[in-house]
Nucleic acid binder design. Sequence first.
RNA 1: GCUGGAAUCGUCUAGUGGCAAUGACAAGAGACUGUAAAUCUCUCGGCUUCGGCCUUCGUAGGUUCGAGUCCUACUUCCAGCA
Length: 247
Amino acid sequence: MKFDKTIVILGPTASGKTGVSIEIAKKIGGEIISADSRAIYQGMEIGTAAPSIEEQAGVPHYGIGIVHPDQRFTVADWKQFAETKIAEIRARGKIPMVVGGTGLYIDALIYDYHFTDEKKLDQSDRTEMCANYLTIGIKWSPEQLRERITQRADKLFVQDLYTETEKLVEQYNWNTQAMKSNIYQFAWGYLQGEYNLEEAKKLFVLDDWHLAKRQLTWFKRNKNIKWLPLAEVESYVLKCIQDEQGR
RNA sequence: GCUGGAAUCGUCUAGUGGCAAUGACAAGAGACUGUAAAUCUCUCGGCUUCGGCCUUCGUAGGUUCGAGUCCUACUUCCAGCA
């Protein structure tokens, strides 16, 4: 299939980005670039709910587990990485899809941030800049999102997470940026007996909820996002591609 | 039943005569172009012509210019004795 825009699928944590994007990619010959500032790190796949090889279902994924947690990896690094991958995917005749919840990363890409000491980009350029991107946000009501976060916590707090946490604790310093404020601190607190499983989950759900709110605040300023309920995302994307084809 | 202690914003909490009342959490809004799942800011009794006004600290009285703070009774809860 041909489509010259890059598809961007964003949304807060637990909004269902991973699932839909893989479904869409399978249908359109898409390849996925993760825009997730934590899934970037190696050894944090379980805790960041990154898709496993099986879940990826043969769809190529980029940007997951590409640096060690104690390595410095900035927005600028990510932007460059994403741009390179987009060019490569396109050269192969496939459709690039950027999927994630890190607003800064996505804006850096679609608004073409320049990382210099100079002033901010002129806001008036914004609409024009992202003409090359089809940006879709997954919309949930606060209640629904909270429920999803809670349910996901139940799926996340299992043996695999504890194993991963122990490995991370053993290998890296708690003070690295990568380890800051994520599920591992709660998993570790539970493993250390600071609180029971129920409390650990509760703390994580609250933390994740706060994250979701901040993500949403960030996304709000991007007026070019097409917000859709999860169930409508796939058909919308397919329709956009068909319309493009018809020209 | 007797004797102590306690009742303050959604929750916990500070407050021993000048208080719309401390702090934390939760909640809400927002900022953010170099580790962003980070970091930071604002609001948080009601109304306001932003000067203020009104209603609040278990309930009802009392003392006082003034009471969340002192006194009396009552209600509820906790602890000890029975």
